[in-house]
Design a protein around this nucleic acid. Structure first.
Lengths: 192, 192
DNA sequence: AGATTAGCGGAGGTGGTCCTCCGGTTCAAT
DNA sequence: ATTGAACCGGAGGACCACCTCCGCTAATCT
């Protein structure tokens, strides 16, 4: 099992074993994901508990601090990203990279949160997550560069910051977002 | 006098005539600019008053609601942008556009705020500001397109959203931000 | 200089969020 | 079915931001 699963293992370890407790844990995670997507990283914790149909005490038992909760949600998303990278690795170099990046954009929750996570103070979990994202994307980038499809004067860090910037801006419709992302990616490709 | 000044006229009309009041007004605007840049659009109003060395009552007298204050700061910035557009209009097409966009990025305050202003509900002032920005940028874009320097399948709206996306992401250092911006702008240029 | 009045500023009421604590409830193991 | 432990949920105190209101201050005018 590759690196990418490490994060969710960390999550699974914290998931309670009793059935009702586990259900609440999942509900909280889902509600938090939703709330963070909507209001950014400082959504109201009491609102999250409400959405999850759970008392505020339960939230605090599972996630002693806002950061714990935030990290848990984030880790979940990042894990998926690793899985997608494996899935697309069969495609031609450029298509694989583009598909992965498009998926990167689609993470609605992470839309706002990823940005706030990249700035700000680092925690172990955030560092691990970022590393995991980089590990997932780097092979795709390197392959596209080796194939002469992507300019060689940029790093995975540059690439993800570029894309997450576009992700964090509001667009009236999805079509425009795709168009603008396409333009940015044209800058990433080598000139023919 | 072109369109761009309209916004600051609106501002000047609201500026008190008494000297101490005018000073407070300016201090509040400066403090707000700073606070919004730092904490985003929901910075604490009491903190802003404190920074300005002014009572909270004074803040509310000048700006009855947070939106009023926000709009005032925003209008100020946008106005400058119009002025810069006029300044660079002598440069060659591509250089003029690029210089203007780079200036666009530099507006630290607007960094976070512009993004939040572009989503969310529209107000008259925001619409006017956006329009003013578009009015300033459109001639530069059209000229660069006419000169065959910029792809013709994108609008000023696409362009500003692209750039403001990059603006809203945190970068470890200014150099990386410039590099990434350069890459995105390569996507904007026509292929030679 | 004195009167006038615009403007100041902060005390305090309101409401929302954070987080703790513990009496009651529900699960699971026997 | 019973029992013990794990878990639930929300009442409540601390805190902070918002915004109003009004007695006081100081700028402007004559």
């Amino acid at each position: 099992m590759p690196e990418q699963i490490v994060v969710s293992e960390f999550l699974a370890a914290r998931r309670p074993r009793r059935t009702d407790a586990a259900r609440n844990f999942d509900a909280l995670l889902a509600a938090a994901r939703e709330a963070f997507a909507e209001h950014g990283a400082d959504a109201s914790l009491e609102d999250i508990a409400r959405r999850a149909g759970v008392g505020i005490g339960t939230l605090y038992r599972n996630f002693p601090t806002r950061r714990h909760l935030f990290e848990a949600v984030y880790a979940n998303e990042v894990d998926d990203l690793g899985r997608v990278a494996a899935e697309v690795s069969g495609e031609p170099p450029w298509e694989a990279l583009a598909a992965w990046l498009r998926r990167f954009v689609d993470y609605a929750m992470t839309k706002r949160a990823i940005r706030e996570a990249m700035e700000g103070e680092e925690s172990d979990v955030f560092l691990a997550c970022r590393q995991s994202m980089y590990d997932a994307g780097t092979p795709l980038l390197l392959r596209a560069q080796a194939a002469g499809e992507v300019r060689t004067d940029m790093s995975i860090d540059d690439l993800l910051r570029l894309v997450s910037g576009i992700t964090s801006v509001a667009f009236p419709d999805q079509g425009q977002r795709d168009r603008v992302l396409g333009i940015a990616l044209d800058g990433v490709r080598t000139r023919s």
